[in-house]
Structure formats: structure tokens, C-alpha cells
Design a protein around this nucleic acid. Structure first.
Length: 268
DNA sequence: GTCCAGGGTCAAG
DNA sequence: CTTGACCATGGA
């Protein structure tokens, strides 16, 4: 076991970060810590005061993964300065941090997410890992790599119950490669060429996989929050507004708004 | 039984 | 460039 402690950590809350819909493999424990699979390790993260404790089966760059070097206080301040409406959403999910996740896992996960709900997405991903990932400990398996999925036939995924998404996953696994891009536009166009990847999934991958923080993924919840809080409808109007108002911080703004809208409904 | 979920594809207008 | 039927699955 590798133990690490990060002291004086600000602007982080584990529930906000792990349950804001950006990741699907972290689960809450009874003591409010979170256990999840990242890369090829299992880790448990707990936050006590401003100290972050991490216990993992292997060494890992947690500072990068948890984006600990970024000043989220500054980002929140600038967002509120440009748009007063987002204040409630930021107060609600004040501890969100955007994780630096593995590119392939993000592509595959959000491909599965289409027209699906988060509990079921998590179930699909867990079953996919159990069936085709590598065993780490008794209960935890790695997310299967693209070349493993690429070798499968459609019926190899039957018991995962991915529905029509199964063929997208295999086709995209075949086409996937770790690539370098000269610009974000080029990366986005490459993503749109993948099977089962449209504007929304590609935006999520830009944000969560490539770390392009100007991305503003629009799903049913963001549509809802844009209509109810801003009175804006239509994908083009939403995109224009987001670019104009949030600019390079669009991804952060989107996460606060998404979490606010989606989590809040459970408490009404 | 109907509606909905972090939508995309494809054909038609 | 936009619109709409269709796509599997399970929970509400």
C-alpha cells in the first residue's frame, strides 16, 4: 500500500468531485471516504479538514489526477464576476475539481453514457471491467484497454447489456490510438469521426480526457439548467452564450451547473 | 403501460 | 445545415 498526504488542500469536496458526473468508478464508503479504480490501481481517498489522505495499491501522480495545482478559488471568483446567475450553482458544488482521466477510458465511458442514466452507466462500466479488465484485487478490475475491446465480437458484450452502444464501443476501440494534435479543433474533429461519438460525447472527452477547459458539453441536464436559470433554449444559442460568458472556463462552469441541476432534484 | 436517462446515426427535407 | 424516426436497457 502506498500512503500519501496532501496538506492545506482548498476548494475540494469528495462528493462534489466524485459525484458530479465526470467519472463512474468512484464509490462512497460508510465513513464518507471514496474508493475507486484509476489506471491499474485501487485507491481510497479521504478528506479530513484540509488534509487529503490517499491509500493506493500502487504509486500514482495524484496531484495531476486531482488537479491539485490549479487555483479553483480564482476560477470561481472570475465566473461569478462575469455571471451572477451561476453563483448558487458554485455555492452548491464548491468542491468540484475536474479530474485528469485516461483518454481511452473517457471516450469509452461517455460513449456508453449516451441516452443512458448515471447509475446504469456505472453498472455497465463495472461489469465491462469485471469481464474484460485485469484483476487488481478480489473485487476490483482495471478498465479494459482499447486493444482488448477491439478484439471482441458484438456478442462478447451481450451480458454487459450495452444495447445498441456495444457496436459503437468495439468500432471505436478499433479506431482508437494515442495521438498528438496540433489544436483542440483537430482533436475535436478526430473525436467526431469515431463511431458513436457526436458533439456531446466529444465535448466531454475534450474536457475530461484532453483537459480542454473551454469545452461546454450540453446534455439534457444542461439544457434544463440553461432554460430554467438563463431562459436560453436551442443548442446553438446555448453554445454561443457559453462561449461569450464563460470563455475558457466553460468546462468548469458546465460542471457546477450540471451538478447543481442534477443533484438538487433528489432533494426536492 | 409510458417516460426518461451526461445522444448518435442516418435519411430526408 | 436542420429535423425526426429509430436505436436497447432498466428504473421511476
Amino acid at each position: 500500500m502506498q500512503k500519501k498526504v496532501f496538506e492545506n488542500v482548498k476548494d475540494i469536496n469528495l462528493k462534489h468531485t466524485f459525484e458530479c458526473g465526470q467519472c463512474f468508478r468512484w464509490n462512497k464508503n460508510e465513513d464518507d471516504s471514496y474508493t475507486g479504480v484509476v489506471s491499474s490501481l485501487v485507491a481510497t481517498v479521504s478528506l479530513i479538514g484540509d488534509k487529503l489522505y490517499i491509500e493506493a495499491t500502487d504509486d500514482f501522480d495524484w496531484k495531476r489526477y486531482l488537479d491539485l495545482d490549479r487555483d479553483y478559488g480564482k476560477i470561481k471568483k472570475e465566473l461569478v464576476a462575469k455571471d451572477n446567475i451561476i453563483r448558487d450553482a458554485i455555492d452548491y458544488g464548491f468542491g468540484i475539481r475536474i479530474l485528469r482521466q485516461d483518454l481511452w477510458e473517457v471516450i469509452a465511458s461517455f460513449l456508453i453514457s449516451q441516452n443512458n442514466n448515471i447509475p446504469r452507466i456505472k453498472g455497465c462500466i463495472e461489469n465491462l471491467s469485471k469481464l474484460h479488465g485485469e484483476k487488481i484485487t478480489d473485487d476490483y478490475y482495471t478498465f479494459p484497454k482499447a486493444d482488448v475491446i477491439a478484439k471482441l465480437k458484438a456478442n462478447d458484450l451481450d451480458e454487459i447489456k450495452l444495447g445498441y452502444r456495444a457496436k459503437y464501443l468495439i468500432e471505436t476501440a478499433k479506431a482508437f490510438e494515442e495521438k498528438e494534435f496540433d489544436s483542440s479543433e483537430e482533436a475535436y474533429e478526430w473525436l467526431l469521426g469515431l463511431s458513436g461519438v457526436g458533439p456531446k460525447v466529444a465535448s466531454c472527452v475534450m474536457l475530461f480526457g484532453f483537459g480542454y477547459y473551454g469545452a461546454y458539453p450540453v446534455d439534457v441536464w444542461v439544457k434544463k439548467v440553461m432554460k430554467e436559470l438563463y431562459g436560453i433554449e436551442g443548442i446553438n444559442n446555448i453554445n454561443m452564450f457559453a462561449k461569450k460568458t464563460f470563455g475558457d472556463y466553460g468546462g468548469f462552469a458546465q460542471q457546477y451547473l450540471f451538478y447543481y441541476m442534477r443533484d438538487k432534484k433528489d432533494k426536492m
